[in-house]
Design a protein around this nucleic acid. Structure first.
Length: 416
RNA sequence: GUGAGUGUAGCCCAGUGGUCUAAGGCGCCAGGUUGUGGCCCUGGAGAUCGAGGGUUCAAAUCCCUCCACUCACCCCA
């Protein structure tokens, strides 16, 4: 027997109500904030991701699904959503559009070769949005506001917004240097992982969870103390705007994010009783990315959020989502002539926009009604030999067991 | 890639060497009502006990290998 590949899963009918619910909230928030949808291909040139996400990151180094196609092209199933949007932005001349250009994507499959665990998969789905071409901290605030309002609109409670600024290409190197010096002077206290991080990706040192490293992290220099004057002003304006908007945020000096393209503002939204894979959504500025991909210097900011984690939290917090709509009518029949009539009736009603499940096979009326019942269908239409003779049908209301003989032409008007 | 736990019907699970030709519940199918669901009663179908190998007179049960799932590390959504 075949199984779905490791780390992938089927989204079964009983799950769909959650996914539909999220989709509806995504579309409405994006419409509310003036974002337009962009769908990009599932795979891209490997170089696009290697370059933007960063050659030293785990995502690029060991998690990409990369393959060579028959034409010899190096391609990669997308491990994230921002780089493709930036590629499309450049490819289709969007720098000429009024700024900022606001784009969103929804339900894109994202692939990373990782060991699966709660809330983490090899193929998962993301929603995200990007605002490209503006460095005003008011835009940062709007993006964070949009993310915050979105998660609230899902009905999730006890969320926390973590915020930090990691500086720009002027001030970040100075900070990284200070950070490295600090850690180097505590090198003997560090775990083996952190010794590697010190060389490869010093920002990641900050979120090591080992207690010995936590102590070093607690006394480590903070990126916000090393911001250049522009970045400092930018960050403090952002905080003012967030206060203006009454969005509660927690400054988190350890929040760094794992992709190299982030600059200045970084943020994450997490449920407060967080498990291991807690982040619902995260994002930040990537002011150098468009330039890195061959465009003119163009500041930008965005967010990505994982749909599975939303669904996980909707269930955990017992949020009631609208049920998937059931067909209105079940058509039961007895005998061959009645079946012919039933087939014709089903077709006519569907053309009149009435949703129908018609019994197939030759089962007893009891079995047919049992199916209508378990399928949670409100009305049953029954056609037997008597009805065929008189040109009528029996309409039964399954919620109260009342039924009457009616003319089939009158059916559409009789269905609640 | 590392560590821990778990794999018995569609689902939940009992069974820890012979009485297992594997129990129960949910669900499914059928009958009890020769044309009427939900409750109840009765019956039925459905399991090569994750896979392969080994120990033993005898393995769902013990051992080994592999696979999968779960959780955690790592990293992120």
């Amino acid at each position: 027997m075949y199984q779905a590949p490791r780390g992938t899963s089927d989204i079964l009918p009983e799950e769909q109500a959650y996914w539909r619910f999220v989709e509806q909230k995504v579309t409405s928030i994006c419409q509310l904030y003036g974002y337009e949808r962009l769908d990009s291909p599932v795979f891209e040139d490997t170089g696009l991701f290697a370059r933007s996400v960063g050659p030293g990151t785990d995502v690029v180094e060991k998690e990409m699904y990369t393959f060579t196609d028959k034409g010899g092209n190096q391609l990669t199933l997308r491990p994230e959503g921002t780089a493709p949007v930036c590629r499309a932005y450049l490819e289709h001349g969007m720098p000429n559009l009024p700024r900022p250009v606001k784009l969103y994507y929804y339900f894109i499959p994202v692939f990373r070769y990782e060991r699966p665990q709660a809330g983490r998969y090899r193929q998962h789905y993301q929603f995200g949005f990007e605002a490209i071409g503006e460095d005003d901290p008011a835009l940062d605030a709007e993006v964070i506001d949009m993310a915050w309002q979105f998660f609230l609109s899902l009905g999730l409670h006890h969320l926390s917004l973590q915020l930090n600024s990691i500086g720009c290409r002027q001030c970040r190197p100075i900070y990284l240097n200070a950070l490295k010096n600090h850690y180097a002077s505590h090198a003997t206290e560090l775990c083996t992982d952190c010794k590697v991080r010190l060389e490869r990706n010093p920002l990641r040192l900050l979120d090591c969870k080992k207690s010995s490293c936590q102590a070093v992290a607690d006394s480590a220099p903070r990126s916000t103390d090393y911001l250049c004057s522009e970045c400092r002003v930018h960050f403090s304006r952002l905080k003012e705007y967030l206060k203006l908007l009454k969005i509660p945020f927690t400054l988190n000096h350890r929040l760094v994010r794992g992709l190299d393209y982030y600059t200045r503002t970084v943020f994450e939204i997490q449920p407060r009783d967080a498990g291991a894979q807690s982040t619902l959504g995260g994002g930040g500025r990537y002011d150098d990315l468009i330039e890195e991909l061959g465009g003119k210097p163009t500041p930008a900011i965005g967010l990505a959020a994982g749909i599975e984690r939303m669904v996980l939290n909707l269930k955990k917090q017992a949020v009631a989502v609208p049920p998937f709509p059931r067909p209105q009518v079940f058509i039961a029949h007895l005998g061959n002539e009645a079946k012919d009539e039933a087939i014709k009736l089903a077709s006519r009603l569907r053309q009149a926009s009435t949703s129908i499940i018609m019994a197939t096979g030759q089962r007893s009326l009891k079995a047919q009604l049992r199916q209508a019942n378990t399928s949670a269908i409100r009305h049953a239409v029954i056609i037997g030999e008597q009805e065929v003779k008189s040109g009528t049908v029996v309409l039964r209301d399954m919620t109260n067991a009342r039924q009457k003989t009616v003319n089939p032409a009158a059916l559409p008007g009789l269905l609640g």
